[in-house]
Amino acid sequence: MRLLRPRPAPPVRPVAGDLFVEASGLHVGLGGRAVLRGVDLPVRAGEVLALVGPNGAGKSTLLAALSADLPAARGTVRLDGRPVTEWTAPELALRRAVLPQAATLSFPFPVEDVVRMGRAPHPASPVEDDLAVAEAMAATEVTAFAARPFSALSGGERARVALARVLAQRTPLLLLDEPTAALDLKHQELVLRVCRERAAAGDAVVVVLHDLGLAAAHAHRVAVLHAGLVAADGPPAEVFTEELLTEVYDQPVEVLPHPRTGTVLVTARRTPHPTRT
């Protein structure tokens, strides 16, 4: 008779403001290239932290290191008070949920079954599982096509179903890699509102974004990555300056206050087109 290993105990939920995950002196290499070169980054419960920066700056690599999916060459990542290397895979699955850039499945699972996969780390509890799945699908507006095969969905619909799976996992840390990339304007706003709601409920949310306007509007903090380092870290209104962003993106930018809300707006500096006569 084979003995089953007991499931790990669920983590104690952090209190808003608690340090839940932290990178210290983090170096990560890929394919013989140093991608992260000494990153220090704290992530606290109750906040949305946006990782921004140009292509190749190390955003996705940093997210993967925070999730323990990529090992550190040097430095450490601590999650819930312990180095990530000391947690087992089942223990990690109860503490952090990861949304990769691309959501792919080899079989045509119905949408609801895909979302229910997020419940795999938890002890079987039909009532709690059904509630978590229903709430996640409602939050991401995918309930209407619960019975449709995942393979029949559009790119944006798949992205929202993948996010619903992450939400159904109900972990205190969400790590989301470009969750708005395939989405229209309405659903970009929806996803970032969900991030704020999870942070308000006490979760720590780390999200990779390319849209600086979305980051400014929804993130409590932004970390600007440049050449494998954190060039700046703080509230968007303080970090998003014309000088810094122009240097980091190698593109002249303008930073302006929104005329109604005062939220920072970032746009490329453009030469006006000549008017036709």
Rank of each mutant, 00 (worst) to 15 (best):
M137Y: 08
A72M: 03
T267K: 06
P11D: 10
E128D: 10
L185N: 03
V39Y: 08
H258T: 09
M117C: 12
L229T: 12
H258L: 00
K186L: 05
P11S: 11
T104A: 15
L209I: 02
E238N: 10
G31N: 15
L79P: 09
A223I: 00
T88A: 01
R196H: 04
V207D: 07
Q101E: 02
F107E: 03
R95C: 09
A144Q: 15
P54L: 12
A64N: 14
V43E: 06
L229N: 14
A219N: 11
T140K: 12
T246H: 12
P172S: 10
R119N: 03
R119S: 01
E112P: 09
D211H: 00
S125K: 13
D203G: 01
A201W: 00
A164H: 08
L174S: 13
A232D: 06
L256V: 08
M117G: 03
G31Y: 04
P110M: 01
L63M: 12
D80E: 11
L244G: 04
P252D: 07
A45S: 07
A45G: 10
T275V: 14
A216M: 08
P11L: 04
A232P: 04
P172E: 09
A164V: 09
R270G: 00
Y249L: 00
L99M: 14
S24H: 14
V98G: 00
E157C: 02
V77S: 07
V194E: 08
A204Q: 02
G29T: 10
E135R: 15
L92G: 05
P100K: 06
F20Q: 12
A227L: 14
E243N: 13
A93R: 06
V208L: 04
A64Q: 15
A231L: 00
S106V: 08
V111F: 02
L26G: 02
V15L: 13
L183K: 10
